[in-house]
């Protein structure tokens, strides 16, 4: 009941904000409104990417550096679906009122991207997460590049020309609805007893195993969930920009997402959100220095590692301390 109220409340608020954004930024009085609108959308996409990567890198402690690969898989799979299958799907959805058709089509595209990236996550995760150590970093790095080169050579999705003609289905409402879902999922997971095992793996794999935690299974689960959200972010991105090019999915993009969570604080959800917003807005403010972006990112990462290794927010949680653990507080306070 409470959960339903939460969901309905979020949808209502996002709907209102969508209406306000359309009225003021897109059709309204604000100068350069559409430009701001786009930055807000990109920030939302980055929030999904950062918070989901944080589940693997920050909470479970497995270092993945190929998040952009999953972002690309989700974007291209869903775009192919709506580009080639769009007319047929629209025909099948004709029974719906006109305003709901776009939404339904987007939901189908989101599901397809989630499915495809979950599969890709399994394929990459199972062999590399069985081993202890940094294999995941190496494999995900390779995966990201392979995917990019593969797409570059598929003519049906535009290859080096880019994928043109993707229908515009996504908007502020959908991007932030998914961002909310991502945050809620990672938040609930990290506080459940199942999810506490992710933290245990990060802290000490051997001790976690000795407690009865199936380490491989948990690592793969975290990785697959994380990949799935990255894929859905890709779907929302492609259906907003209506154009995809492999240049948006290079190693630099993966690196950017890692910096977002490193700046905010590995393992902190609020930190990942903050990092995503900062790293979307700052490059816009400093457009003139675009060529130096990767140099600035590297410097920022080095400085943070030296002066504030726990990130800007660290492990501190804005939404209250964890204190004495879920069971203790649940049983004690009856909350």
């Amino acid at each position: 009941m409470k959960r339903l109220a939460w969901i309905l409340g979020s949808v209502a608020i996002l709907g209102l904000l969508q209406w306000a954004a359309t009225a003021f930024l897109l059709d309204g009085p604000v100068r350069q409104g559409p430009y701001y609108y786009q930055i807000i959308i990109l920030a939302g996409v980055n929030i999904i990417l950062a918070v989901s990567l944080n589940l693997t890198n920050g909470i479970t402690g497995q270092f993945s550096i190929g998040h952009a690969g999953f972002f690309a898989v989700g974007a291209y799979v869903s775009a192919s679906l709506t580009y080639y299958g769009g007319p047929a799907l629209r025909h099948a959805l004709a029974f719906l009122p006109a305003f709901a058709q776009n939404g339904a089509l987007l939901v189908i595209a989101l599901l397809a991207s989630a499915l495809a990236t979950a599969l890709a996550g399994l394929l990459v995760g199972i062999p590399s997460l069985r081993l202890r150590g940094d294999y995941l970093a190496i494999v995900t790095l390779g995966f990201g590049e392979i995917i990019r080169v593969l797409i570059l050579n598929i003519d049906a999705v535009g290859g080096a020309r880019g994928f043109v003609g993707i229908p515009k289905l996504s908007n502020f409402f959908w991007v932030y609805l998914l961002a909310t879902m991502t945050v809620a999922t990672v938040w609930n997971l990290s506080r459940s007893s199942y999810g506490r095992a992710f933290l245990a793996i990060r802290e000490n794999e051997i001790a976690a195993q000795a407690m009865g935690v199936d380490v491989t299974r948990h690592k793969v689960t975290a990785f697959v969930i994380s990949s799935m959200f990255a894929g859905m972010a890709g779907c929302l991105f492609g259906h907003y920009t209506m154009y995809l090019h492999t240049n948006s999915f290079t190693f630099v993009k993966s690196f950017e997402i890692i910096i977002m969570i490193a700046i905010g604080g590995l393992g902190s959800i609020e930190g990942a959100i903050l990092g995503a917003v900062v790293l979307t807005v700052l490059p816009e403010l400093f457009r003139g220095f675009e060529g130096y972006r990767i140099v600035i990112y590297s410097l920022a990462l080095i400085l943070i590692m030296i002066y504030r290794p726990q990130g800007l927010l660290g492990r501190a949680s804005l939404l209250g301390r964890r204190g004495g653990g879920a069971v203790t507080s649940a049983v004690k306070g009856g909350r």
Binding site: R196, A197, L199, A200, M211, R322, G325, A326, V327, T328
Partner: peptide
């Protein structure tokens, strides 16, 4: 992790 969280694990 806190003492209580360690025990819960």
């Amino acid at each position: 992790l806190t003492v209580a969280e360690n025990l819960e694990l």
